[in-house]
């Protein structure tokens, strides 16, 4: 599906699946602001959901690979989609561990992709946090 309908469908429908309703500003309605956590010393990606559990979705696999590659960065980022308020969730890294709820969340995926992109461009954790807050906060 191309053109306007395809573009708007890719933005709107995905947000509908996440938020359950139409209208501009859905993502903003989901935002749960708060401080970024400090990366835990020695944190690894051992609990990140493996590629074979991602249903062959190439984009999703690529995102989870970025998280697997940069656990220390992801562990210093707060996820603004609301899962940070869930018991047992510490950081954006948590969204990719165990059941990997990030599989179903565009904000979790966006934060990971943006964090990795900025890290690879040489940005500090503080700069990445500021960008995450501007984009998703």
């Amino acid at each position: 599906m191309g053109g306007r309908r395809g573009f708007l469908a890719s933005v709107g429908a995905a947000l509908a699946a996440m938020a359950g309703g139409p209208g501009r500003g859905w993502a903003r309605a989901l935002v749960r602001r708060g401080p970024h956590p400090e990366p835990r010393p020695g944190i690894t990606a051992e609990r990140v959901l493996p590629p074979e559990a991602l249903g062959g979705d190439a984009d999703l696999i690529a995102t989870f690979d970025k998280v697997r590659r940069l656990p220390g960065v992801m562990d210093g980022i707060r996820c603004h989609c609301g899962c940070a308020d869930l018991p047992g969730f510490y950081s954006l890294l948590s969204c990719y561990e165990d059941a990997g709820m990030a599989r179903h969340c565009q904000i979790c995926q966006g934060e990971a992709n943006l964090s990795a992109r900025l890290h690879d461009a040489g940005r500090s954790l503080a700069e990445i946090r500021e960008a995450i807050d501007a984009r998703y906060g």
Binding site: S10, V11, D59, T63, Q106, Q109, G110, N113, L114
Partner: peptide, 8 residues
């Protein structure tokens, strides 16, 4: 870019 940081 879109919400997943994908390129539009």
């Amino acid at each position: 870019r879109g919400l997943k940081d994908e390129v539009y």
